[in-house]
Design a protein around this nucleic acid. Structure first.
Lengths: 202, 202, 202, 202
DNA sequence: CGCTAACCGAGACGGTACGTCCCGTCTTTAC
DNA sequence: GTAAAGACGGGACGTACCGTCTCGGTTAGCG
């Protein structure tokens, strides 16, 4: 009933229905936001009956939470190789791009609003943010250890500043943060040490 | 009808009703969020009749927008004197305190959500943020001009990073940004020049 | 406060207001009926403020009852002379005419409806009907005593039948009872004795 | 939508809801009258949601009219056999009993009031009265033809007088017409011919 | 003839019912 | 047995009046 991902649907129609409805739910959330999110809209969008939705998810929140939980993972890029600074630039650029325009990003206001009302959504939202930030933090720590950044830098604070800047653009201004300025942003928060030439020279 | 603040009500009851209802609306918004915001709930909270609300505001959005517009201004602290760095620390601490806990701050998720649906709310939200950020930006510029910060710093980007960090804590993590760490944050984004008269050395 | 007619208003505005409002109330009652009767309509009709009405009458029912009580008396005709049968025919014709078309008559459905809810209105309605019927009953009794009608006739039952016929037309059919048929009706209920000096034979 | 009786509801809940709500509407009408009739009160009485009512009837008047139209027929007694006079006595007694006390009868003032405002209600009210009166009229005509009553009698006028007397008691006096006096009333309006012994003797 | 008190209209107030819309649940029918 | 259709109880919406109340402005009639 909780619609968790572990339910190995015997009937292939079931899994198909679930996938279609989950996608419709995210679309609806992106378009209408949390407040105006309505099961009837999702049903219409997925060309399904309301009862089909309620058969698989307990209620609105259950559907939203499950849709988020199932849709996650698209944000984590492959860090590939390179210096820490390069990987960070890549990661930040990726986050900025996704934040600037994607269905998922358009759901963030809804996620924030929903997190106020439902603990499961809150846990997902905060946990997901924490995981993303942890990735960045460890990259920064690696950079400090590699001598790319000043040793006095608070890696977690820097990660918050970088991600905060990106989300600030999305949530508090008319224009999201420009992904092209990702490098600029990283340099501002994590100035490359003059003596450590970014691992490029030599 | 738009409930603007300029309406010089002849009947003293009018201004009183408006004030009480505006406060109730903000309380409701802080507690229930944008989606669950209900005029009937505001009326009950303000111990007013629904008709009294509709007499002064066209609809839900008109009330919310007017309540925000009227409630503004509480965020601007007195810059007082001191070096730019000191003023910035004070300002950031103030923003962090308000963000950590105030009725207004608890309305921010609602404001973000509402801005998606209503242009008036969007204009208020973005305009207000811009004004706040402009204040910080000009302080940073002054600091650069005074030789307190490195001349290469992008003042606006730095302001976004600082405010973004504070709001990131509020919106994306379980715990808001700790106001006690305001100085730390400012120093991380705007490292004091060692040679500058930052008010500390000598 | 009860708006009784005895209040010798010192200020001539008072009596004038009362008269205008009472008339407006009857007009409104005739036009809109009891259910749709509204103080605001009466006020608009009388070009008065609502408060002026509530200053003189406690509420809707008080106004209606007082308007009826003040307006009464128009129904009682002067029987003049003639035989009982002639007087009865005249009276019935008069009642039929008034019932067919007059402001007062158009208020009767409202009066019946109102009588269900308010004892004062009920007392007025029943009392007024009783007074009218009593007049007819005594005429019939006189006719019996004079030998114009059969001695076995139940005068009160006959009066009820005559008035009932007239009101039945008003309340239960599309067309009110035709006043021209008043004589016919009286003759049907009170057949003139052939031997009696009914004023017709010989 | 008009709630007519012909709607062959596929879902059995539909007919059940309609019946319960119609009964609640009549009860409310009998108790509160036309003016104070409220859909919300009917919903509470029927333990139904307001939306269920509006799903089946356009508005207040549609519900009232349909409730009346559906509830009709309870007034028609079994004519059985016997002489015309006997049948008339039975019919009048029946009408008097129903008029004296029944939910339907308690709705008559509301019906009269409502007929002033709504043509559908007016048509029902006048049509229903006409049908009832027609039954009585034809019985009287049959009685005249059978020699039970004087040939000069105007059957329709007599029917109006009889029914008018009964309703006069209900609408214009504190006490409804006593059913025990039905025979007395019929004899007063339709005196049995001395030469036609009512079909009793022999 | 000017003062004062009453009466006036206008309309804000807390309420209640309206008729509409949509929620999330539950029932029925069709495939 | 699953899905689509949609009836159900519920509740907020924004509107229209209710009857009460608080306003200044006008007007009558006494000093």
């Amino acid at each position: 009933m909780s619609g968790g991902p572990g339910t190995a649907g015997l009937d292939p129609r079931v899994e198909r229905s679930r996938a279609v409805i989950r996608q419709a739910a995210l679309d609806e959330l992106a378009e209408s936001g949390y407040g105006a999110f309505s099961i009837e809209s999702v049903a219409a969008r997925a060309r399904a009956g309301k009862s089909t939705i309620y058969r698989h998810w307990r209620d609105k929140l259950d559907l939203i939470a499950d849709a988020f939980e199932t849709a996650h993972g698209e944000l984590v890029p492959h860090p590939a190789g390179g210096t820490a600074a390069e990987q960070i630039r890549l990661l930040v650029r990726h986050v900025a791009e996704i934040t600037a325009d994607s269905t998922f990003s358009r759901c963030i206001p809804a996620l924030i609003e929903g997190a106020r009302h439902d603990s499961r959504l809150r846990d997902f939202h905060h946990g997901y943010s924490a995981r993303r930030r942890a990735g960045l933090t460890s990259l920064i720590s690696a950079g400090i250890a590699a001598g790319e950044f000043a040793p006095g830098i608070d890696a977690d604070l820097a990660a918050q500043a970088i991600l905060g800047t990106v989300f600030y653009g999305r949530l508090m201004t008319p224009e999201p943060f420009d992904p092209a300025r990702a490098g600029e942003l990283v340099d501002a928060i994590l100035p490359p040490l003059p003596s450590a030439p970014g691992g490029r020279e030599e």
